[in-house]
Design a protein around this nucleic acid. Structure first.
Lengths: 143, 143
DNA sequence: AACTATATTGATAATCAAAATCAATTAGGG
DNA sequence: CCCTAATTGATTTTGATTATCAATATAGTT
């Protein structure tokens, strides 16, 4: 998984004539080691703690670059902060977002995906992307 | 429809001890006469043109108030601008958003709604709200 | 109609995350 | 090692929305 991400980014970088830097390698490794969604702010705080030389702007730019390279996917839960997750290879997924504790649970449902296609076709739409989020209380916060 | 909105707001205002003002009446009437989603910016421009005394802050505050009163619903298509639509009485709906021309088409699908409930239940989630948007090219922009 | 307490307005400043700026630094081919 | 272009990071700017606050308007109450 990690190797795939590194390889994908290297290919993208090569094609674009980008130079490899310590900062990008560091951020890439950190991002690939994550198993949850993180905002730029959170990413910055953790990365900056370990590597004080890396600034906010670099984290911001680099994550955007990863998104362009196809290894990260930006998600926006409407709280005014950009979050990034590993770009889903193969299976697309959607999110359950807890409004109390902020927990994020991923899910995927083929039937919903198919119904979306049907709806789009009915309206002559060519779908490029979609977002489905269910907001509510997670099992823990309901109690 | 228009009367319903006015009545709903008056009831809400009465319950909250809000005073009735020319500005709010003007914005309410304008909003209720719309048949499409508008951002605060668009609302402000049109309203301000007819009633130059009404400022941006008032439009912003008032739309938020309408949302609290249940007559408007804020929707966020991730472009950094808040939009408002008439609060759906009864049937909830979702959106097809054209990434080219910005056209917005509403749709609703009971099967998807039911599947969402199933998914939430499976994860022990108590759904409070959801958003489903399909982004792509509308029939006109595909050509 | 005048008085009064409270809500509202509108101009402006503040906020906040993200993007742009730009001089200094660094990478990597020649 | 040199040179050119890419990159960095401190800082400023942006842009939409929100907060501030003095001035004004509202709705009871005399």
């Amino acid at each position: 998984m990690k190797e795939t991400g590194v390889r994908m980014f290297n290919e993208y970088a090569a094609g674009k004539g980008l130079k490899s830097t310590r900062q990008r390698d560091t951020i890439l490794e950190f991002f690939l080691s994550l198993d949850r969604h993180m905002s730029i702010e959170e990413l910055y705080l953790e990365i900056h703690q370990k590597f004080p030389k890396i600034g906010y702007a670099t984290v911001c730019r680099t994550m955007k670059l990863f998104a362009e390279a196809g290894i990260a996917l930006g998600v926006d839960f409407g709280d005014g902060q950009m979050r990034y997750e590993h770009s889903p290879r193969g299976q697309h997924h959607d999110h359950l977002v807890c409004t109390e504790c902020g927990a994020i649970i991923e899910f995927s449902n083929d039937t919903i995906e198919k119904l979306q296609d049907t709806i789009a076709r009915k309206h002559g739409f060519l779908i490029q992307s979609h977002r489905l989020e269910l907001y509510g209380l997670c099992a823990l916060c309901r109690k």
